[in-house]
C-alpha cells in the first residue's frame, strides 16, 4: 500500500490552496471531530443499534471524503452498509479497521501539514 491509498494528494493540495492559512486549522478540526465520531461509532456498536451505527459511519464517511482520505471513507461506507442492512456480526472487526486507519491518517496528515 502506498500513501495514495490513505491520502488523496490532489484533493488535499486543492484544499490547502483554498483554505489558505486555515488549512492547518481545518486538519486539526477534522481530527478532533473525527475522534468524537469514532467514539460515537464504538458506542453504537456496543449498544447494537444498527441504524444509528450506520448513520454514525455515514457521517464520518462524508468528512473523510471531503478531506481526501479514500481508505477511511471506503471503510466507513462499508460500516454504513452493514448498519443499514443490519449485519452487525462483521461490524466489530470493521470498527477495528476504521480505528487503525484513522490512527494511520492522523500521523500522515500531521506530517502533511
Amino acid at each position: 500500500m502506498t500513501i495514495e491509498t490513505h491520502l488523496n494528494d490532489a484533493v488535499l493540495s486543492d484544499l490547502r490552496e483554498m483554505m489558505e492559512g486555515e488549512f492547518e486549522f481545518l486538519v486539526t478540526t477534522f481530527l478532533d471531530d473525527s475522534a468524537q465520531r469514532l467514539e460515537d461509532i464504538q458506542h453504537q456498536l456496543d449498544s447494537g443499534d444498527s441504524a444509528a451505527f450506520g448513520r454514525a459511519c455515514h457521517s464520518l464517511k462524508g468528512s473523510a471524503t471531503n478531506l481526501g482520505l479514500p481508505r477511511l471513507s471506503e471503510l466507513c461506507r462499508q460500516g454504513e452498509e452493514l448498519g443499514y442492512s443490519d449485519q452487525m456480526d462483521a461490524a466489530g472487526e470493521l470498527v477495528g479497521d476504521i480505528k487503525e486507519e484513522f490512527e494511520q491518517v492522523t500521523d500522515l496528515l500531521k506530517d502533511y501539514v
Binding site: 484544499l15 483554498m18 483554505m19 489558505e20 486555515e22 486549522f25 481545518l26 478540526t29 477534522f30 471531530d33 457521517s59 462524508g62 468528512s63 471531503n66 478531506l67
Partner: peptide, 12 residues
C-alpha cells in the same frame, strides 16, 4: 453539523 465540512464549504 460537521465542523470540518462546514469549514470547507465556507471557504469555497
Amino acid at each position: 453539523d460537521n465542523h470540518s465540512d462546514r469549514l470547507i464549504l465556507q471557504a469555497i
